[in-house]
Nucleic acid binder design. Structure first.
Length: 512
RNA sequence: GGCGGGGUAGCUCAGUUGGUUAGAGCGCGGGACUCAUAAGCCCGAGGUCAGUGGUUCGAUCCCACUUCCCGCUACCA
């Protein structure tokens, strides 16, 4: 059984500053990466920026900058965000790097050599004001002039020399590929969209541009730059040192386990990308998951409160882990999620402060007052104790499966149930009434500590900083965190002295 | 227009391969306790499961229609 796991975020297009959608993709990818690491996998987690294309070139010109300096500046904001979000990425790739350029040109050459690319003319009705091409049925005749039906702007017939990728040829192979790999595109509803699209017929794809220069040159014809998507998608290979397919990274991690993307760029990842790769005889990735969008409640966009969608502002105000937890917990993964400051505050108070934070606090402070912070030694589990501890092994396989099938919500719900159960356990056992029964008191505390340990391990991929505060207080180092340890009931060494922890999550004062 | 998904408690959502009292979290009301971040625990109120019609012994779940919302319908990324 191979224990390698390669996960990617989209590489972000730095034409504007990072928003909540970027943060969401990254946070979820980090969640999977961290989980697989504590499951013992060798993980390669990649993120980065996609820096070529006309839009960037124009944005740079507007600012009176050369495109590269412009990209350096904006790419840095995304790099900084990856730090702010505490991402555990192994690499941060930029498409303006030499290693990437080499990789893209190499892929291009393969395609060209295999006759998958040919030179022809791109023609169509182009609207200068819309910066868009329209097909015959999208234009109409008004006052003897051809205009776009949608925008009404005048269109003109344009022809431009362009290289084409023989996408049409890959229609049937793609459909076959989807059929043989039913989980290649997830969630299922998205897969159906893609399959319908492919079934409706694929035209050859224009994969070069002459109209602007900010991109990777076509090796055989320097007047052309390579189409941004062929360029951008290849980043997933470049970071593994492609075209050197004999190096360790490539051999271990390709094909990628999962490309995590937003639903808006599904087509590029689910159609073009596997088509390019099949054509080049490179294995396509194993899975493409198109998650939903993060939306903010309509009335929440008030100017006075500021824009909820700005991840940096939210993190400054509430902290990183609360945002990570909130996004992972409350967004139904795969669907669009409505977020609001109000919901975030509720989530922090109930789930993090009252439930998890307070559980840690009440148990540890009880341990301090009664057992001088030492893990109890003389104890014996009864049926109730065993039952609550056993939940974790009973459902362990389901938990692991939920991650492998990207059922994040199952995973988080399980944690929440265990938090409720643990608080209830402490309540029902009433250790404060058992001070004369030392052995029972020891047992209740040992069980409670074990529950906190197990839950904190499970929380590590979601809220690494907070989880680590607890685990470190339990003398568990980050490197030694192992998801399999939640199956153990006596993992905490007896008599060891634990450390105090400060309040994990401060409650938000609600004023209304 | 075509294809697809959806309308379930105040809010966010789960669920039912059709079967006695439809679930969770949050919010709300009440109770007992006190280790804890006035946290936690227990109990409770709240739903004609979008509407209409049909199939069925029986439908929230199947079918048809109506209505509302959303997604996809290729070369901006």
């Amino acid at each position: 059984m191979k224990k390698d796991f390669y996960i990617t975020t989209p590489i972000y297009y730095p034409s504007a500053k990072p928003h909540m959608g970027h943060a969401y993709s990254s946070i979820v990818a980090d969640f999977f990466a961290r989980f697989k690491r504590i499951q013992g996998y060798d993980v390669f987690f990649l993120t980065g920026t996609d820096e070529h294309g006309q839009k960037i070139q124009r944005a740079a010109e507007k600012r009176g900058m050369d495109p590269k300096s412009f990209c350096d500046e904006i790419s840095k904001t995304f790099f900084d965000l990856s730090k702010t979000l505490n991402l555990s990425n192994n690499d941060f790739i930029r498409t303006t790097e030499k290693r990437h350029e080499k990789s893209v040109q190499y892929l291009w050459n393969i395609l060209e050599k295999k006759n998958e690319i040919y030179l022809s003319k791109y023609s169509g009705w182009y609207s200068v004001s819309d910066e868009a091409f329209y097909s015959d049925d999208e234009i109409e005749l008004v006052n003897d002039k051809k205009v776009s039906k949608t925008s009404g702007s005048i269109v003109e017939w344009v022809e431009e020399e362009s290289f084409f990728f023989k996408l049409s040829k890959w229609q049937e192979p793609l459909l076959k590929f989807y059929k043989e790999n039913p989980n290649f595109i997830l969630p299922e509803s998205r897969r159906n969209e893609v399959i319908n699209f492919v079934k409706s017929g694929l035209k050859d794809l224009s994969v070069s541009r002459k109209s602007f220069s900010w991109g990777i040159k076509v090796p055989s014809n320097k007047e052309h730059v390579i189409y941004v998507w062929l360029d951008a998608l290849t980043n997933y290979l470049s970071a593994l040192n492609f075209p050197d397919t004999n190096n360790k990274l490539y051999k271990s991690f390709w094909p990628a386990t999962i490309h995590l993307i937003g639903k808006d760029i599904l087509r590029f990842h689910a159609i073009y990308w596997p088509a390019f790769l099949l054509a080049a005889e490179i294995k396509p990735p194993k899975r493409v998951y198109g998650h939903g969008w993060i939306l903010s409640g309509e009335e929440k966009m008030s100017k006075s409160k500021g824009n909820i969608l700005d991840p940096i502002e939210i993190i400054n105000k509430y902290g990183l882990d609360p945002l990570r937890y909130y996004l992972i917990k409350e967004v139904s993964f795969g669907n669009d999620g409505n977020i609001s400051q109000d919901k975030l505050e509720n989530c922090i108070n109930s789930d993090l402060a009252n439930n998890y934070g307070n559980l840690c606090q009440r148990v540890i402070s009880f341990l301090e007052k009664n057992l001088e912070m030492k893990v109890p030694n003389n104890f014996e589990f009864n049926i109730d104790d065993k039952k609550i501890l056993d939940t974790f092994n009973k459902d362990f396989n389901k938990l692991v499966d939920s991650i492998d099938s990207q059922d994040i919500n199952y995973y988080v719900n399980f944690i929440q149930e265990q938090l409720f159960a643990s608080n209830k356990y402490f309540n029902d056992q009433e250790p404060w009434k058992k001070k004369e029964n030392k052995k029972r008191l020891n047992t209740i505390l040992y069980v409670s500590l074990e529950l906190i340990r197990k839950i904190s391990v499970m929380l590590y991929p979601i809220i690494p900083n907070s989880s680590l505060k607890v685990l470190k207080a339990f003398n568990i180092s980050e490197e030694s965190i192992d998801i399999n340890s939640i199956k153990l009931h006596e993992n905490l060494k007896i008599n060891q002295k634990l450390n105090k922890i400060s309040i994990l999550f401060k409650k938000i004062e609600k004023n209304d």
